[in-house]
Structure formats: structure tokens, C-alpha cells
Simulated assay, not measured.
Amino acid sequence: MSAGAAGLAIGLAAGLVGGLVGGSAPAAAQEVTLRLHQFLPLRSTIPAEAITPWIEAVEADSGGRIEIEHYPSMQLGGAPPSLYDQARDGVVDIVWTLLGYTPGRFQKLEAFELPFMVSTAEATSKAFHEFVQKNGLDELSDVHPLVVHTHGPGLLHVRGEGVRSLDDMAGLTLRGPTRVITKMLDDMGASAVGMPVPAVPEALSKGVIDGAVVPWEVTVPLKIAELVDSHTGFEGDRGLYTATFALVMNKDSYAALPDDLKKVIDAHSGIETAALFGAAMDEGDKAGLGIARSSGNDIRMLDPGPWKQAAQATIDDWIAEMDAQGHDGAALVEEARALIEKYSAE
């Protein structure tokens, strides 16, 4: 039995014994305590506007029988790339993590990270949920998936003169979140550095990097608008890139729940919850854009044409990698595009 499941089982036993010994104990006495671990501060968009409401809803719908302890900012130890394994191994019961922090592990799911795929976070998150159900559950088979989602369109946030054209990418050192996105930045002429997002502010302030690609919502807790001079996005209904996230549960912790509490967890999983997480990202983007405007930074929206041409190498190389591993890379890309189009049109 994993550590997480063992703790959960102890909680169940304690609740049962308490009920037997003190026959007058309320029926809604706590039975399960779950630990949720993630890498961002509580004030960040997803922790504040998605994870915390999710916890509150689960606890309320369980009649108080589930308690979820929320540990932000890696408070339980490890680095962000270790979160998925913490859930898999039962170090904690639930994690929220960026899937691309473990390069090459979720290969088919990388289709959503490819350039100029993302529309809104809400629509793209719903598309990603359906894509995972059809194509990616095998890549998440060592955990119990609860919610998968994406953020909204990522942008370039750069110090100094920033980026006014594709030519301006030459000579820039830019942070990227995942192997696909760092490859894209390299293909566009920059020197890309992989880096978890909590490390970005210090890297910017010390001049280790010239800029970073993140969505607007992440710029708020990291105070990116104070550390750069310009923000570059793209015209049209598709953004430069997105990254993919998952809220997942240790399999033994889920299996140890009584059936009625499994139903509570299940009711707060799936596509509608993915949409809520995505919608929180979209609202956070509005806040980040507002702060950048009030800071007087340059905000530029460029013609994506030349950038799409430069990014085609990223797509072609990814398709070739998938084909070499026995997947139909082109079919995965086309299905991802079709699903994003489907939900964006709703």
C-alpha cells in the first residue's frame, strides 16, 4: 500500500472507530484527509480561482467527510518536476502539475503544445480533455486523472526593446516551460532555456534570461510586468502556444475511498471541471493584461504569418518523432486542431 493510501486508510479506520465508540458522533464526521501539493503560490490564478473552489466543492458535497489539505509552492518538498511522481508513488494524494515538466513522458499529449493551436483556455481545455480521453489515458495510467486543462495563449515577455519582428528573436535568451516550446523558440531564432515558472522572476532580475514565454495570468503573481518592458502576442484567434496541466490522484488513495466518496470525486472531475479551470485562466489573463497596460509597458500584436512559417519545423519534427515511436503524428495534430475548433465554435 502506498504512503498516501495508508494515511487515507488510517483516516477511514479512525472515523469508523470514533463512530462505534461515541455512538452520538455526527453522521457527517470526517473520514478522509487528502493532501494536495502544487507548485504555485495560493494567490496565483489556478490555486486561488480553481483549486481552492474545487476543494471547497468536494468537501461540501462529501458532507464534511473529505478534508483536502492544500500545500502550495512545493511546501512538502521536491521540485515542480517531481510532482507527478509524488502522486504516483503516494507521497501525497493529489497533485496539480504542468505535464511538460517531465520531458518526453506524455508524448501524445504534447500535440496541444505545438505552435498556434490554442484559442481560449476554456475551449482548449475542453478540447484537451476529449483528446486525452481518446488518445492519452495510457500515458496517465499510473495515476487516477481528475482534471486536465491548458492555459490561454502564451506570449513573449521581454526586457529592453523586446520583439517587434521575427528578426528580433536572434540573440535573445528566453525561458520556455517544456521541451516542445523550447524547441519552438530555438526554431524561431532564440536561445531557449527550460525552466519551471517559479524560477523566472529571479532569472529575469539577474539577467540570466532576456525574457520568458508565459500567459498573461502568470505575469500577475510573478510580477513579470515589473521585470520586462514589452509583451508580444499575435493577431487572430490562435495564440503562440499553450502548456498542459493535470490534477491527478494516487490510484491507491482513490481506490481506498468508499463508493459514495468516489462518486463525489468523480462528480468534480471531467470535462466541465476542465472548462472551469480553463475559464479561471481566461479571467486571469484579463488581469495580467490590465496590469501590463497600467505599467506603461509596450504591448504588441504581430502578424503571425512569418512566425507560423518559422514554427513549422517544430511541428514537422514532432510529427516525425511520433511516427518513429509508432504513433500517427499527423493524425494527432489534426485531431487536436479539430477538437480546438469544435469547442472554440461553441
Results as ranks from 00 to 15, higher is better:
Ala9Ile: 12
Leu16Glu: 11
Gly23Arg: 06
Pro26Gln: 07
Leu34Tyr: 00
Phe39Arg: 11
Leu40Ile: 01
Glu49Arg: 08
Ala60Ser: 12
Asp61Ser: 11
Gly63Glu: 13
Glu69Phe: 03
Met74Ser: 06
Gly77Glu: 03
Pro81His: 09
Tyr84Glu: 02
Ala87Met: 02
Arg88Tyr: 00
Gly90Gln: 08
Leu98Trp: 05
Tyr101Asp: 03
Leu109Ile: 15
Ala111Glu: 01
Ala111Tyr: 04
Phe112Gly: 03
Ala121Thr: 11
Phe128Arg: 15
His129Phe: 09
Leu146Gly: 11
Thr150Ala: 04
His151Phe: 10
Ser165Asn: 09
Leu166Gln: 06
Asp167Trp: 05
Met169Arg: 10
Gly171Arg: 06
Gly171Ala: 05
Thr182Lys: 01
Asp187Ile: 07
Ala190Glu: 04
Met195Ser: 13
Met195Pro: 15
Val200Asn: 11
Ala203Gly: 07
Ser205Asp: 06
Lys206Ser: 14
Ile209Leu: 14
Lys223Tyr: 05
Ala225Val: 08
Phe234Trp: 08
Gly236Leu: 07
Leu240Tyr: 04
Ala246Ile: 04
Leu247Glu: 08
Met249Lys: 08
Ser253Tyr: 00
Ser269Ile: 13
Ala279Arg: 13
Gly290Asn: 07
Ser295Ile: 04
Ala310Asn: 06
Thr314Met: 03
Ala331Asn: 05
Glu334Tyr: 00
